[in-house]
Simulated scan of single mutants.
Amino acid sequence: MRRVSVVFDRSRQDAHPLHRAVIDAATVSTATVLTWDASRPTPTTLSRLDAPPSVVKPLVNDLSAVDDYALSDDDGATYAFVQQEQFEMAPRLADAVAASGILALPPITYREDGTIKFTFVGTHDALQTLFEKLETAGDYEITSVGEYGSPAGRCRLTPRQREALKVAVSVGYYDVPRTGSMSEVGATLDCSESTASELVRKAQAAVVTGFVE
């Protein structure tokens, strides 16, 4: 099973209504659709916009497809629970996804520059069919490809690296201010300080890379 992240470049005319609002709004740069249910009579989405509710409320009010909504403040950003009159996706993109037999995974990110980030999962052949269909759906760029295994995607830790991170946390190496040392990590793992440091650095690199991707 394969996992692929794709960034689409959409024109404002072809964009989802929420995406058009992000493109037009000077005070909102991203809207991240965290989860959705398109099977309801009023399709429902939960999104996070990087602007306060005072900015998001008039933006959502102006969306013609919105049937009802509720907003929650998130320290300067906003969660938007939105019920829509219909679930909207560009027809050619929707057809490409439906014909390929793959699944779109949350989140979907709408950006102010007109691009959208999707992550898809499916068999190798299904994803190959998707790419063939996307040739007629608009410009896109594949940003990462890998085996699907966990929400962290390509974050892979060896058992020893995972143990090293757990020990580093337990001795206080990540406390602020730091209360533990790498020599303590090595002593607990029964290895040298330099070996412990290498294990922790590699584990950190895998975790951070997986988070960013």
Results as ranks from 00 to 15, higher is better:
36 W>M: 04
21 A>S: 09
163 E>R: 11
168 A>P: 01
90 A>Q: 15
60 V>N: 01
26 A>W: 15
7 V>S: 09
180 G>T: 05
102 I>Q: 02
20 R>S: 06
53 P>R: 02
65 A>E: 15
10 R>L: 15
90 A>G: 06
93 L>V: 04
182 M>S: 11
140 Y>A: 00
115 T>Q: 04
128 Q>Y: 12
90 A>F: 13
209 T>M: 04
125 D>S: 14
119 T>V: 10
154 R>G: 14
10 R>M: 15
110 Y>W: 00
209 T>C: 07
68 D>N: 11
24 D>K: 02
142 I>R: 09
167 V>S: 01
53 P>D: 02
179 T>Q: 08
51 A>C: 08
29 S>G: 09
129 T>C: 12
45 T>R: 11
114 G>P: 05
60 V>P: 07
149 G>H: 08
208 V>G: 10
200 V>H: 06
166 K>I: 13
117 K>Q: 15
72 S>T: 12
179 T>A: 00
116 I>W: 14
14 D>H: 15
152 A>E: 14
162 R>Y: 07
213 E>M: 08
36 W>N: 09
163 E>L: 06
126 A>L: 07
92 R>F: 04
142 I>F: 00
175 D>W: 05
89 M>A: 07
17 P>Y: 02
72 S>F: 13
171 V>E: 01
65 A>H: 08
97 V>I: 12
9 D>R: 13
118 F>I: 11
18 L>T: 05
9 D>I: 02
88 E>Y: 13
204 Q>P: 00
68 D>E: 09
118 F>H: 11
139 D>F: 08
79 Y>S: 10
182 M>E: 04
204 Q>R: 13
28 V>F: 03
105 L>H: 06
64 S>A: 14
74 D>W: 15
86 Q>C: 10
141 E>Y: 01
89 M>K: 14
194 S>M: 10
59 L>H: 00
51 A>K: 12
37 D>Y: 04
187 A>T: 07
27 T>I: 03
98 A>H: 12
43 P>L: 03
19 H>N: 10
139 D>G: 02
143 T>H: 01
138 G>V: 09
160 R>M: 00
141 E>D: 14
64 S>I: 13
126 A>G: 09
33 V>A: 08
125 D>E: 14
106 P>T: 01
197 S>Q: 04
159 P>M: 00
28 V>A: 07
146 G>E: 09
143 T>W: 08
38 A>H: 07
104 A>E: 13
64 S>G: 03
32 T>C: 11
78 T>V: 01
2 R>G: 04
210 G>T: 07
162 R>W: 00
35 T>S: 15
146 G>N: 01
129 T>E: 08
25 A>Q: 07
206 A>D: 08
78 T>K: 03
86 Q>T: 15
19 H>L: 09
202 K>S: 12
6 V>G: 00
30 T>A: 06
